[in-house]
């Protein structure tokens, strides 16, 4: 898998961040090296093996369908941002 600037820009877009030009150049070589390294996994035979996504060993944890007491009030949470108007968080235009 060859990583070029197009790949980097695509990944930055998927990741929702802006990259400077010098950053993009550095990331291109870094990500190329990392992908080359992790590709060594192909040497491991996983034929017929089921994947593991968690090591918790428990399933279906049930609890009563009741609202749990929250640790923070809406006012406390809103106080974490500076741009609050009419009990709403204000953001730049969306469209």
């Amino acid at each position: 898998m060859e990583v070029n600037q197009e790949t980097i820009q695509h990944l930055a877009e998927l990741s929702n961040f802006a990259l400077s030009e010098s950053e993009s150049a550095g990331l291109q070589s870094n990500i190329q090296e990392i992908l080359t390294y992790i590709s060594e996994l192909n040497q491991l035979d996983t034929e017929g093996i089921e994947p593991t996504y968690q090591v918790f060993e428990m399933e279906n944890i049930w609890r009563p369908d009741e609202i749990m007491k929250q640790d923070a009030s809406p006012d406390e949470l809103l106080s974490l941002t500076e741009t609050v108007e009419k009990h709403q968080i204000k953001v730049p235009k969306v469209l």
Binding site: T7, I8, A12, L14, L19, E23, N30
Partner: peptide, 10 residues
């Protein structure tokens, strides 16, 4: 950033 990008790649 490297890790987020690798994550989104894989």
């Amino acid at each position: 950033k490297r890790r987020i990008m690798i994550g989104n790649f894989v």
